[in-house]
Amino acid sequence: MPKIKYIEHTGKEHEVEVPNGWSVMEGAVKNLIPGIDADCGGACACATCHVYVDPAWLEKMPPKADMEETMLDFAQDLESNSRLSCQIKVSPELDGLVVKMPKSQH
């Protein structure tokens, strides 16, 4: 199972295994990792699962769909490596992925 490292805004790290096919958001929520709210449960409807992808992993990221792109435009503290974690599907290629959480999702 791919391992994903989540880093809280405070710097606290959590490395967990996430099943292939799940989203990076679900990996955090199901492992009680704080910093991702995901109010809508992964429907790309609320923009409360914003993460920063470690720059070393950007090339391996699946592309953003229009919806994610436009939702992200309105996230707080947007950076070029911002993604909505509900839209990143975990796959063997993402084994070792590192994401950081923003200060706030609202």
Binding site: A47, D66, M67, T70, M71, D73, F74
Partner: peptide
Amino acid sequence: NAAPEYLV
């Protein structure tokens, strides 16, 4: 399919 309209 219009996230900016919704969010703003």
